[in-house]
Simulated scan of single mutants.
Amino acid sequence: MQSIVVYCGSNFGTNPVYAEAAYSLGNELARRKINVIYGGGNMGLMGRVADGSLENSGTVTGIIPNFLAKLEVAQKTLTELHFVDTMHERKAKMVSLSDGVIALPGGYGTFDELFEILTWAQLKIFDGPVGVLNINGYYDLLILQLDKMVEEGFLHIDNRKLLLVSDNAVDLLEQMQEFAVNNPGNKPLDKSLYLENDND
């Protein structure tokens, strides 16, 4: 894997363990020479992931909508910073540049991005590994919900297995690498599949 998208909160959360984990993930990605792709912001966990990579000789690509950049929340010291018009375009650009996706703790935006990429993986629009870094048990209840969806017949077990989970960045990246090796058909996202409905 050469590039990984990181979804995470623009807040720090109430426990310092989240910021520490975000920085450590950025550091680990830099150590493995994996480019970080993220939403381009300088606040909260987003900023800490970028810092963790950049301060350890890594590379970081930010994708930010123009309306957010005007609010001056863009990280200024990135390796690359791309400006787009819409949130849909942002998500498309991020994933089209990536070989995999990791979600850290976050709010509505993080969950939106995570479930959208899982849906694309289910539909085989995206073939890369998708993982959550389950820091401090943040995703425990979500994992139980996914198991409930399988139990009640709304989620196929094979699609449940599309989400990789660990509370440790090194272990999660190893799981993702194994997934990538065992699923060599990884292909770039065909943005035309959904951008044509960008105004919906």
Rank of each mutant, 00 (worst) to 15 (best):
V132G: 04
N66T: 11
Q122W: 09
F126H: 14
L189N: 08
G52E: 02
Y139T: 03
G47V: 11
L189P: 04
L141S: 15
P188T: 08
L104W: 03
G52A: 04
G128W: 13
S24T: 14
N136K: 10
M43N: 11
S10C: 13
P16W: 02
Q175G: 02
S57Q: 13
H156Y: 08
G39W: 11
N199Y: 15
N27K: 15
W120K: 05
A21R: 01
D167L: 04
A50F: 04
N197R: 12
L142N: 07
P188I: 09
T86G: 08
P65A: 00
K93P: 00
G40M: 07
Y23R: 14
M176A: 03
A121K: 15
K124M: 07
L173W: 05
Y38W: 08
F83P: 01
L54N: 04
G40D: 05
P65T: 02
P188R: 12
G9D: 11
V170H: 12
W120C: 06
V73Q: 02
L173A: 07
G128R: 12
S53T: 01
A169L: 08
F115G: 10
T61Y: 03
A169K: 11
V6R: 04
I117P: 07
H82I: 15
P184E: 10
K76W: 00
V132S: 04
F83R: 14
P184S: 12
Y139S: 06
E113V: 05
D99V: 06
A169C: 12
D99A: 07
M176I: 04
G58W: 08
R32W: 11
L195T: 07
E89G: 00
E28R: 09
F111A: 11
L193P: 01
E113P: 00
M94C: 06
F179E: 01
P65K: 03
N11L: 10
K148H: 12
V170T: 13
T61I: 15
K148D: 12
N182I: 00
A74Y: 05
N159Y: 12
F126P: 09
K161A: 15
I34P: 00
L163A: 00
L104T: 03
N183F: 08
K93Q: 09
D112H: 11
F115C: 12
M176Y: 05
A22P: 02
Y23D: 09
L155E: 03
G47F: 09
L193S: 08
T86L: 09
D167E: 13
Q122S: 14
L97I: 00
S96W: 01
D140Q: 14
